[in-house]
């Protein structure tokens, strides 16, 4: 329902909304700006907002000094790896629950969700010890396994809510039209499910990329993703604002971009379909 709104009111709302939006975004903006300053300018008083000598030296230094690329690749491998593995396990499960629901399907779904509610500290010690004893501590494989498991319920749920929206009649129509199981999957199901699978993929890469309990506790150096690498800036390097900002900007930039693409799916995925 498009209502006519007076221009004065619209102008007022525009000003307020932009002010609030910029205020909320400001810490990120400030980080990005600071990453282009020299260390001296970064702590200058009064702070310099836009008028400083823009430089890329922090990015060069972060990269050369701290093996940044290794940690970046760890983040990529761990988040993408755990998401793909999770999808491989979850797609058949979600598919069968959506299209061949049984009496206990609902219970299974709810139970899966309940595993997500298990606070990580409840299993921190056993996982730590199991990983230590099996040599998985500080390995990418170890983190891929853990992140797959903690995100599996979300992946199953997201896919389930998407698959459920594919009308069963369409699959039946395909069956009547002579499609076998394989053709049904290739020609009908997959094309219709791809958007849902893509959003699930996106959201889970984001969640895995930002996961900061297991990545901090199960890695030391070798397999540390960006979450753990940035945590190492806690002190004293954290006082080098420009370098901290450069490292942070690099760490959050890819996810900010992905996140903006997936904002619609975010609501659905994180509320397990309860809000659409």
């Amino acid at each position: 329902m498009a209502r006519r709104v007076s221009n004065r009111r619209k102008t007022l709302v525009t000003i307020v909304a932009w002010a609030v939006g910029i205020a909320i975004f400001f810490p990120i903006l400030w980080t990005i700006l600071t990453s282009f300053k020299t260390e001296a300018e970064a702590i200058a008083s009064p702070p310099k907002f836009l008028f400083f000598d823009w430089t890329l030296e922090n990015y060069a230094e972060v990269n050369s000094r701290s093996n940044y690329f290794l940690h970046f690749m760890n983040s990529v491998i761990i988040s993408v790896g755990s998401t793909l593995l999770g999808l491989a396990i979850a797609i058949p499960a979600a598919w069968s629950m959506a299209f061949v629901p049984g009496k206990r399907t609902k219970d299974v779904l709810m139970w899966m969700l309940s595993t997500k509610m298990l606070p990580p500290v409840g299993v921190l010690i056993p996982i730590y010890l199991l990983f230590r004893d099996s040599g998985l501590l500080d390995t990418r494989l170890g983190l891929v396994i853990v992140l797959t498991l903690i995100n599996l319920p979300i992946i199953v749920w997201m896919l389930f809510t998407y698959f459920k929206e594919i009308p069963g009649e369409i699959l039946e129509a395909a069956r009547m039209d002579g499609a076998g199981l394989w053709e049904e999957v290739v020609h009908v199901l997959t094309p219709m499910a791809v958007p849902g699978i893509a959003s699930t993929l996106l959201l889970n890469i984001i969640l895995a990329w930002n996961e900061a309990f297991w990545t901090l506790n199960l890695t030391a150096a070798k397999a540390a993703p960006l979450t753990a690498f940035i945590a190492s800036y806690s002190s004293p390097e954290g006082l080098f604002y420009a370098k901290l900002s450069a490292a942070s900007t690099l760490a959050i930039a890819p996810i900010l971009v992905l996140g903006w693409f997936s904002q619609k799916q975010l609501v659905r995925g994180l509320t397990f379909g309860a809000v659409k």
């Binding site: 909304a17 932009w18 609030v20 939006g21 910029i22 909320i24 975004f25 810490p27 990120i28 400030w30 980080t31 600071t34 984001i206 990329w209 930002n210 900061a212 901090l216 960006l226 979450t227 753990a228 940035i230 945590a231 800036y233 806690s234 954290g238 006082l239 604002y241 901290l244 900002s245 942070s248 760490a251 959050i252 996810i255 900010l256 992905l258 996140g259 903006w260 904002q263 975010l266």
Partner: peptide, 23 residues
Amino acid sequence: VRILVIAPFFVMPTVSALVWKNM
């Protein structure tokens, strides 16, 4: 504005903690 407002959600916890703490 919508994009600006939701952005903090995509910042990893260690980054937002450090940025707030130091800067």
